[in-house]
Write a protein that binds this DNA or RNA. Structure first.
Lengths: 329, 329
DNA sequence: ATGAAAGCGCTAACAG
DNA sequence: CTGTTAGCGCTTTCAT
C-alpha cells in the first residue's frame, strides 16, 4: 500500500515561507505572524495538504494512537462485552482525536505495537507475553476487564466476584437453596471470579456445594443449552440457576420453556451483563449490570494520564449492580 | 505519547553487520548469508528489537494499515451490523497481518487518514466529503454497505431492496394484504431501500399503499415501540408487519404481546438482519439474512487488490436470504 | 518571528 | 552477499 505526495515543502513554497514556519502553523505554535499564518493556511487549503502522520511521529517521537488489544477468543470476542468496549473506547478516541488501532489478536505473537503511543489490553488471554513486552518497553499500558495482581500495570476491572455473590445471595434471599451455576469459560478471569463468587455466597450461607450443580461452558449458547439440559435432567434439579452471561441465560430460559417448565415459577434464572437483549426475551431477565462503558472510559483516561507522564499505577475494581426484573422468584 | 529507543543501528552493531543487512533480514530478503541472518536474528532477540512502523512506512512509502470508518450515528452504530462488520474486518486484518485503524467518526471533519494504506467506508452518512477526499488523494478506497452510484469507487452492498421485496412477498403469499412497515432511519441507504422494496412488493401485487401503515423510526427500540403502538391503535390495524431490523422486530413483538395479542396468530412479524437474538425471543423471528461477514471480507479483499495496483473498480450487490421461522402465518 | 540544518529509524538504489 | 549513501516528511534546536 502506497502513501501520497503533497508535502510540507510544497506548502512552504506556495506560501513563500520556510518549512519550519509551515510546521509551526500545523502544530499551532504561537510564534508565527498573523500574515504568515494566513498564507500558510491558505496554501494548505489550496493543496489539500495533510501532514504525514508517519513523518510526524518519527520526527517528534510522539504519536497519538492507542492500540486496543482484544483476544480473538470466540467466547469472549463474540460477547456483548467486546462490542461495548469497542464502542466505548472508539467513541472516546474519536472525541479525543486519538487514533484507535484495533487488534483482534489470536494471541501468540509479539505483534507490532510500537506504532501505538499507548496500549489497552482487554482481558489477558493467551497474550500475557505481549503485555509483559509492552511493560518492558515502557509503553504506557493499561489492562481492562482483568485484574492483574502480579504486574506493575494499571488495571480497571469489574467486581465479578462481588456481582456474582450478590446475585446468588439474592437467590438465597428468595428462599432458594438448590442453586446451580452455568459458568463461563474459565480461561477468562471473569468466569473464574463469578464462579468463586457463587461458591462464596453459598458457603457464607451454609449451603453445601453440589458439584453437579456447576457446569462449565465456553460462554456459547450451544453449551448453555447442553448445560441447562443436564441440569434439568438431574434427579434433584435446581430451583434456580445463576448463569454467567445474559446470552446464555436467554438460551437456558429457552430450553426450560421448551421442556414445558416456566420461568420464574418453576425455575428462577439470573444472568450477568445487563445485555439489552435480556429485556426482550419471553421474560425479562434479572441480571447483574457491569459498567462496561465506564470501564472503557476509565481505562482510556488512565492511559492518557500515563502517556502524559503520570507514574503511579492504579488498580481499580468497578462495582456491579443487581438489576431485578422478572426471572426470579 | 512517546515512542521507544532500541533501533536498527544497535542491532547492527551487536550483530557486527551493517544496518542494511539488518533491514534485509527484517524484510526477509533472501540475499543474506545464513551466518549473518543468524547473528542478526539473535541480536534482535537479545535486544527485543521491534522496528518502528513509522520509520518503515516513511522510508518505504508503504504501509499496511487499513482504516475502517464507521459513522458514529446512533441508530446504525448501535446495531448488530456494526459489530459484525468490525468483527469480520478485524479478524481478517489480523490474519492478513494488517493493522486496523478504527474510526468511529462523528462525520464532519476530513480527518487524518493518510496513515492508512487503504480505507473502508462503512456506510456514508454525513461523511461523503471524507470519501471524496480519499478518492481525490488516490488512496485505495472501498465502500461497504452502501451502493454508491455516482462516484468512481468500488462498493459492496447488500441487496436491501431485493430482501425487503422478498420478505413482503412472502407475507403476501401467506395471504396478508394489510401489511405495515416499520422503517429504519431514512438517513441510511439500507432503510430507504428496504422501504422501497416494501412499496414495490405491494405495488407488484396490486395492493394499494396505505400511508398509515408506514412508520419511520431511527432504528431504536424506543421508536419501534411507539411505531408498533401506533400501528396497533389504527382503526384498521395491519395483520402483518415488516420491520426494518430484528432488534426492532423484537420490540414490536414485545409490545404486541403486552397488548395481549399473539404472534403469529394475530399478527405476523418479519424482521431483517438475522441477528442471533432473533432466535431467542418468545417466538423465533422470520427474517432476512444479510451476509455481513461476507460483505466485510469481500470489501477487504477488494481493498487489498486495489492497493496492489488493481485499477478497475467493482460494484457488487450481495443477495440476502429469507429465513423462515415462527413469527409469520 | 523566522530559517538552516540536523536528525527521527528505516528502506532502497547503487556500488562493490 | 554486503555496505555506503541518500533520502522519506516532518520536528526541533539553534542561530539570527
Amino acid at each position: 500500500m502506497e502513501t501520497k505526495k503533497t508535502n510540507i515543502t510544497e506548502v512552504a513554497e506556495l506560501a513563500g515561507v520556510s518549512i519550519t514556519t509551515v510546521s509551526r502553523v500545523i502544530n499551532k505554535a504561537t510564534s508565527v505572524s498573523e500574515a504568515n499564518r494566513r498564507k500558510v493556511e491558505e496554501a494548505i487549503r489550496k493543496l489539500k495538504f495533510v501532514p504525514s502522520p508517519y513523518a510526524q511521529a518519527l520526527a517528534s517521537g510522539k504519536n497519538n494512537t492507542v492500540a486496543l488489544i482484544i483476544p480473538r477468543y470466540e467466547g469472549l470476542f463474540y460477547s456483548y462485552y467486546a462490542l461495548e468496549l469497542i464502542r466505548g473506547i472508539g467513541t472516546l478516541c474519536d472525541v479525543l482525536k486519538l487514533d484507535l488501532l484495533l487488534h483482534l489478536t489470536a494471541g501468540r505473537d509479539i505483534f507490532n505495537c510500537k506504532s501505538a503511543g499507548g496500549i489497552i489490553f482487554a482481558d489477558i488471554i493467551g497474550n500475557r507475553s505481549q503485555l509483559e513486552w509492552a511493560l518492558r518497553e515502557g509503553i504506557p499500558t493499561v489492562v481492562i476487564n482483568s485484574f492483574v495482581d502480579d504486574l506493575e500495570v494499571s488495571c480497571i476491572a469489574i467486581d465479578n466476584m462481588g456481582g456474582a455473590k450478590e446475585a446468588v445471595k439474592y437467590l438465597i434471599s428468595l428462599g432458594h437453596t438448590k442453586i446451580a451455576h452455568i459458568a463461563g469459560d474459565t480461561i477468562s478471569q471473569a468466569a473464574v471470579l463469578r464462579l468463586e463468587g457463587y461458591e462464596k455466597a453459598l458457603a457464607e450461607h451454609g449451603i453445601s456445594e453440589n458439584q453437579e450443580y456447576i457446569v462449565k461452558t465456553d460462554y456459547s449458547r450451544g453449551q448453555a443449552r447442553q448445560a441447562t439440559e443436564k441440569l434439568l435432567g438431574l434427579k434433584d434439579p435446581p430451583t434456580a440457576i445463576f448463569v454467567a452471561s445474559d446470552s446464555m441465560a436467554l438460551e437456558a430460559m429457552a430450553v426450560i420453556m421448551e421442556k414445558g417448565r416456566k420461568v420464574p415459577q418453576d425455575i428462577s434464572i439470573i444472568g450477568f451483563d445487563d445485555n439489552p437483549s435480556s429485556l426482550y426475551g419471553p421474560v425479562a431477565i434479572t441480571t447483574v449490570r457491569q459498567p462496561l462503558i465506564k470501564m472503557a472510559e476509565e481505562g482510556l483516561k488512565e492511559l492518557y494520564s500515563l502517556t502524559k507522564g503520570k507514574k503511579e499505577i492504579r488498580k481499580t475494581l468497578l462495582p456491579t449492580e443487581l438489576i431485578i426484573r422478572d426471572s426470579c422468584k
